[in-house]
Design a protein around this nucleic acid. Structure first.
Lengths: 207, 207
DNA sequence: GCGATTCCTCAACAGTTGTTGAGGAGACCG
DNA sequence: CGGTCTCCTCAACAACTGTTGAGGAATCGC
């Protein structure tokens, strides 16, 4: 099972009419984003879309393939993150913070799959492997060489984890105080904190 | 299902010999921490402990109750967090960072249940409700009144989310760069960042 | 009109899940 | 020795899972 967390670029033969297909995909996106992978059943997704469960199978092949189809967002989405990292260092905190929040807070076609990916990856240990490779390929490898010098790599990973933490709290766990704040307010709070860790590479010795 | 995420203080009648009981509890702790709630099956846990699946039922009543038993760590564990928040504000960043990392990185009897709780809460939307109430009761309500003034509450929630993000990256997703660092090194990187958000309440207008 | 193709429904499969109840093995008490 | 109680095993249940294959209905090309 879940061998298909990483987006597939296979141009598998598309079967079924576009309308029903997107209805299923919409239902699947929501289910995977809210219930996670294992708790989302083909039968529930089919019911949400108003179709027969076996139709989902005939259209998408398997539950894994359906998940992969949901996860198939353009490769440029993640590159927005590495763009934010590359750039003037004295405003890196705000740029990176904004990029993370915008991606997970914007178009549901992007944010819902990413939520599903987070839930799947955190939900059980197996799925985490694919999340790691996705991040590695789509973000880390796109960073400018300058950002790999010294301890900047570890700083980037910490900052990313922190921002994902905020997103988990806001989007998944839905902590009230975080949901209430609008995006710009959150950025004002968080940006200085991210700037503190990304903007001062090398000086760790102050104690 | 999973109606028992919040620790139960019910002194339910303890059944079975202590040795077998703890063997089951140990197996369950590991399973829940690594596989999450839904993917952890009674049969697998029983096999790990070397006992019959139905024995687990007879000892703990149900899968939910077993999870609750695993989750039943002393109430003082979480209070270490609020202690860290209460205290001198110019060293709050390091204190809070250290408290979070120590709790999730120390005694497996504490850290494994907390990992399981995170996986369960993030894995599917239903379980998040109980996580929220746990945090609310065990941490927020213990904060000194001084920390509820102004925007300090939201700052605390953001900082907590960020630290949980680091823990998720380090313990659950096991991002290589985060796992490699020892605790003190991580604290040196993160503390200034947490200090930036907790140490300067009120000044949000600088743009 | 008719054959073929596409779209969809229905019933069923094999496997896994939590959970239950009956009963056996052995210790312990009288 | 006989009875009781604890500890445990076994088989089975009902529900749910992903998945499959057969067949009906509608549509399209001719």
């Amino acid at each position: 099972m879940n061998s298909a967390i990483a987006p597939q670029s296979n141009t598998t033969r598309i079967v079924g009419p576009a309308a029903t297909r997107t209805a299923i995909l919409d239902a699947a996106r929501v289910r995977f984003a809210t219930d996670g992978f294992t708790s989302s059943t083909i039968r529930k997704i089919a019911a949400d879309a108003g179709v027969d469960p076996s139709l989902v199978m005939q259209y998408f092949g398997s539950k894994d393939d359906l998940f992969a189809s949901v996860m198939d967002l353009g490769p440029n989405t993640m590159s927005r993150l590495s763009e934010a990292f590359n750039g003037a260092i004295d405003s890196i905190g705000e740029r990176v913070t904004r990029a993370f929040l915008e991606i997970w807070d914007g178009d549901p076609l992007v944010s819902q799959p990413l939520q599903a990916l987070l839930r799947a990856a955190i939900g059980n240990a197996q799925a985490t492997v694919q999340l790691r490779s996705l991040i590695q390929k789509r973000v880390i490898d796109d960073l400018s060489p300058r950002l790999r010098e010294g301890d900047m790599a570890i700083r980037i990973e910490i900052a990313s984890s922190m921002l994902v933490g905020v997103i988990v709290g806001r989007q998944l766990v839905q902590i009230e105080a975080l949901v209430e704040q609008d995006r710009e307010a959150l950025i004002r709070y968080i940006a200085p904190s991210i700037q503190a860790i990304l903007g001062n590479p090398g000086d760790v010795g102050l104690d």
